[in-house]
Nucleic acid binder design. Structure first.
Lengths: 172, 172
DNA sequence: CCTATCATGTAATCCGTTACATGATTAT
DNA sequence: ATAATCATGTAACGGATTACATGATAGG
């Protein structure tokens, strides 16, 4: 029962199936307008991961008889247990923010003040654009947990938009 | 000149060398107390990446004659150009926040209100701990660009600590 | 001198990304 | 009908992570 340890993608798939996304495409749709904004799962992952979980006995796969003949997944009891345990378990891993703009700022010694300001303005704009997207969807999200996650994203974008805005006007 | 496209790690290494970190260990040290907090580079990456960049002609490698005989890197002109171009180039990739706590919240339908509160409290605590770390180091960071990045981290941790704190007290 | 830890790598596996490719539906 | 796009995958490659392993240096 090769207990290969599960990755975040594994749990995401288990969670998506638990929320009713029984096909890979449905998983893609469900993530697209919410958690996918800051933890993007390429669709190929959502197609590749379920077979692994089937192999581990955490998912069950049914093949449609007609039409697209797509693979329809459902949770097994061990799968449900694995998901629940993960949800309850305190998370220890440090969150990672992989922001290229911050990386450039970190290494920006070689840039002039104007170039730093340009970077900051571009970053501010990007964050405001993302903020606008979140504001436009937040009211349409019915699942309260999903809505809470969108709110977190909203707060984050606001924070960073302000950070860059200040940097654009205040020289280092 | 196999123009394999450079990854963020590539530019990080170029940037670190530009800032005077001429050995892999020095790179590790320089990142550890600043950008490494939210974009962690395992030391093996900092040892594995430079040879690739040497291969591409972006770094030059000198081997120490004595002692540890370590590899000492320096920027070539193409390497410096690549770094500068990257720094000036507007960044298009969306920043990614990979936060397991948020992922659990997203899938937290199956959790009770108490369990959500427990998750939120644990997350708040983790963010406050990180916040304390940033506060303890921010004054000691001399490089203004590094300091700005630490400030960004500080704002982020504060934002998220508050987000989780509110969630812990307000039922969904 | 001996030990602990600092420092420097290597190896192997596997996941994630990117691109390719094709089948089904819908719109015109 | 035909084109466009929606939907569903596969393949290949490379990078990232996780362990393993060993050589130097400093401290006792």
């Amino acid at each position: 029962m090769s207990s290969a340890q599960l990755t975040p993608v594994s749990y995401a798939v288990l969670g998506l199936v638990a929320q009713g996304a029984t096909t890979s495409y449905a998983m893609k749709q469900m993530t697209a307008k919410s958690v996918g904004y800051f933890w993007a799962f390429p669709h190929s992952q959502l197609y590749a991961e379920p077979p692994r979980l089937v192999e581990l006995g955490l998912l069950d796969e049914q093949r449609e008889a007609e039409g697209r003949r797509r693979r329809v997944y459902s949770l097994t009891q061990p799968g449900r247990d694995a998901l629940e345990n993960w949800l309850r378990e305190p998370t220890s891993e440090q969150p990672q923010i992989r922001d290229t703009g911050l990386l450039k700022l970190f290494f920006g010694d070689g840039l002039s003040a104007d170039e730093i300001a340009a970077l900051a303005q571009a970053q501010e704009e990007a964050h405001r654009a993302r903020l606008a997207v979140y504001e436009s969807i937040v009211d349409g999200v019915t699942n309260p947990h999903h809505a809470a996650v969108v709110r977190a994203g909203l707060l984050h974008e606001r924070t960073f938009a302000e950070f860059w805005a200040e940097l654009a006007t205040t020289p280092l």
